[in-house]
C-alpha cells in the first residue's frame, strides 16, 4: 500500500512537470488582467470575440488596476498577461517598472468613460449636491468659519448646506483599495475642496498638504465602507432611504427602478450627461496592450479589432448597453487608429 502511494505520487509529479512544460511553451488564449471597473466591459467583448471567431475566449482576471499593472509589467513571455485593464491612466512609475522588466512597448487604448454616481433610494427625492457639499460632508477635516482645519463637525446634510434636507449623513462607498474610490476622491472631493478659498490657497503653496486634506475621507461612521460589491450597496440603499451610495454608473443603469442618481453641481448622472462631459464625476477607462505579444498569442489582433469596432464601443455598440459611456466620435477614431497601428506610449 505504501509502495503504491509512493508510485502514485511519483507519477503525478512527473505528469505535473510535463504538463507545466507544455503549458509554458505556448499559450493559445489571451490573458487579461486588471481593473474591476473595466471587467464587465472587457468580458462582454471577450465573450463576443470567443463566440464569433475560432479563437479561444480570452481569460479575464479582475485584479484591480494597480494589481493589473504589477502583473502586466512583470515581463514579456507567455506566463505574463497580454493586456491589462485600468480605470486610470498608467503612472510613469509603472511605465518605468515595465521598461525595467523588458516591457518596453505598450499600446494605450482608451475605451470610454465611467461616471461615478452618488445615488439614493427612489422612495425619497433625489439629492441636489455640489462638489463642495460632497467635500464638506465627507472630508475628515474641513475648514471652519475662521479658516482653520477642524475635524468634520457635520452630522446632517443640513449642517453641510441649509438647502439640503435635515437627515443624517450616511454614505456607503467603496474601500480604499478600490479604483472607484480613487476616482471619486480625485474628481468629486478634490474639486469640492478647491471651492474653499483657504484650501485653494493651500494648493498653490503646498500641493501635498492640500491633497492630504482633500483626499482623506472621514472615519467617524458617516462614511461606511461597503466592500467592493456594488450590488450590496444597491440593496442597502433600497432598504435605507436616508443613505447615499457611491458606485459606478453601470449599477445605476441596471437598477433604475430602485435607485436614482443625485445631482452633482446641478447635473444628474445620465448616459447623455456623462457622454457629453457635463456630469463632473466621470473618468476615462483604459486597457494597455503588450505589443511584443501581439504577433505571438493567437487572436490578439482580432480581439483588439473587436474591442475597437463601432459595434462594440460605438455610440450604439453593445458596450453602451452594459453602461459604458462611449468616447466622442473623434476620440474614438483616434484610438481606433492607435490600435490599428499599435502606436506605443512614448516616454
Amino acid at each position: 500500500m505504501f509502495k503504491k502511494t509512493a508510485i502514485v505520487i511519483l507519477t503525478l509529479f512527473t505528469a505535473v512537470n510535463l504538463c507545466s512544460l507544455f503549458a509554458q511553451s505556448s499559450r493559445d488564449n489571451i490573458n487579461i488582467v486588471g481593473s474591476s471597473t473595466v471587467y464587465p466591459f472587457a468580458t462582454v467583448v471577450a465573450e463576443q470575440f470567443g463566440k464569433t471567431t475560432s479563437f479561444k475566449t480570452p481569460k479575464i482576471e479582475s485584479t484591480g488596476s494597480g494589481g493589473g499593472f504589477k502583473l502586466f509589467c512583470a515581463g514579456v513571455g507567455v506566463e505574463h498577461p497580454d493586456i491589462t485593464n485600468a480605470s486610470r491612466a498608467i503612472k510613469s512609475s509603472e511605465i518605468e517598472t515595465c521598461a525595467k522588466n523588458g516591457v518596453k512597448e505598450i499600446v494605450e487604448v482608451k475605451i470610454g468613460y465611467d461616471g461615478i454616481v452618488l445615488a439614493n433610494s427612489k422612495k425619497t427625492s433625489p439629492m441636489r449636491l455640489s462638489a463642495k457639499d460632497v467635500f464638506t460632508a465627507l472630508a475628515k477635516e474641513v475648514p471652519d468659519a475662521s479658516g482653520k482645519l477642524v475635524p468634520n463637525p457635520n452630522k446632517t446634510w443640513r449642517d453641510v448646506n441649509p438647502a439640503l434636507p435635515n437627515i443624517k449623513i450616511e454614505v456607503l462607498g467603496p474601500p480604499p483599495t478600490s479604483g472607484t474610490r480613487d476616482a471619486f476622491v480625485e474628481l468629486a472631493m478634490e474639486s469640492g475642496a478647491r471651492k474653499y478659498q483657504i484650501l485653494s490657497d493651500l494648493r498653490s503653496k503646498d500641493e501635498k498638504a492640500f491633497t492630504a486634506v482633500a483626499h482623506t475621507i472621514r472615519e467617524d461612521g458617516a462614511y461606511i465602507e461597503a466592500g467592493e460589491n456594488d450590488n450590496l450597496i444597491v440593496q442597502k440603499l433600497d432598504a435605507n432611504a436616508n443613505a447615499l451610495g457611491i458606485f459606478g454608473f453601470s449599477f445605476l443603469d441596471q437598477n433604475t427602478d430602485k435607485i436614482q442618481g443625485s445631482f452633482v453641481d446641478g447635473v444628474q448622472p445620465t448616459f447623455d450627461a456623462i457622454a457629453s462631459g457635463k456630469y463632473p464625476v466621470s473618468r476615462p477607462l483604459f486597457f494597455y496592450v503588450k505589443k511584443a505579444h501581439v504577433n505571438v498569442i493567437p487572436g490578439m489582433k482580432e480581439y483588439l479589432k473587436e474591442f475597437s469596432s463601432e459595434k462594440a464601443w460605438g455610440a450604439e455598440g453593445y458596450l453602451s448597453e452594459k453602461g459604458l459611456i462611449p468616447m466622442p466620435d473623434q476620440e474614438r477614431k483616434t484610438f481606433a487608429d492607435n490600435v490599428k497601428n499599435l502606436k506605443t506610449i512614448s516616454r
Partner: peptide, 17 residues
C-alpha cells in the same frame, strides 16, 4: 493564483484556465 477570472470555455484538462 488567478482563478478568480472570467472564463467562458469549459476547461478540458488540468492545465486549462
Amino acid at each position: 493564483i488567478g482563478m478568480v477570472a472570467f472564463i467562458v470555455d469549459i476547461p478540458g484538462g488540468f492545465t486549462d484556465p
